[in-house]
Design a protein around this nucleic acid. Structure first.
Lengths: 117, 117
DNA sequence: ACAATAGTTAAGTTATCACTTAACTATCAA
DNA sequence: TTGATAGTTAAGTGATAACTTAACTATTGT
């Protein structure tokens, strides 16, 4: 099950790196050039370009070049589908915990019945 | 900036693997033993145990062993903080797009004023 | 006591990651 | 036209990832 390359794999993989999260944070404020993205990062421009390639491959970021500057912006859709995956899991376990809560309070009522809720 | 090991790194890293996402999906339905987690997966038990170790290190899953069976359950907190990181980015870009929308509709009003909204 | 079940651990393999240096290509500005 | 700016690409390196096989430990049902 090594390289699945499914969209979620790429998105979570991309977000797993702190440098790339910094880049995404920057881009969620506003679009930026590659050098602007690189400015706060302690690595070569070359490395930043490679991180950018990962972000683009994951669909989290899109960019276009005009003249000699490439402007990058986030692509909400990919981020949203990562968010959706998580929130669906949350929905699932919350539903279960609710049922569990109901069950517990009901058995408690059966064991030593007091006032109806 | 190689090994940051920050909680979010570990959480996103863990979620980047499709096998581990399947395990998390299973666990968000209900707790399960290691062999139950392994059942639908096309790999050795050993590999599954290793994936489980990654999930536990990331804080996404917790487990306890009783007799010879280890029961695993999801740990909502870690999943929630990953979700929160994403939704904060979303808040950020949505705010910006709102302001942009306001700006555009205002300039449009200035350019060729029609009815007030 | 024995065998089957449930999981653990170590070691090895192959692939991928996160960089770096270095050489190179455009574009813009003086 | 020359130099600085902005980015690209290739090749190499060391670390980590995702497995496998194999040998082993503890628990439980018969």
């Amino acid at each position: 099950m090594l390289p699945s390359s499914a969209p979620l794999d790429l998105a979570f993989q991309a977000l797993a790196d702190p440098t790339r999260r910094i880049m995404v944070e920057r881009l969620s404020q506003s679009p930026a050039s590659v050098s602007e993205l690189a400015r706060p990062l302690d690595m070569t421009l070359s490395a930043v370009v490679q991180h950018l390639a990962v972000l683009e491959a994951s669909g989290l970021v899109r960019s276009e070049k005009v003249g000699r500057v490439r402007t990058c912006r986030i692509e909400p859709a990919a981020l949203r589908s990562a968010e959706r995956w998580i929130s669906e899991r949350r929905a699932s376990w919350e539903r279960r915990l609710d049922r569990l809560g109901d069950f517990l309070s009901e058995t408690e009522l059966l064991a030593k019945p007091r006032r109806k809720k």
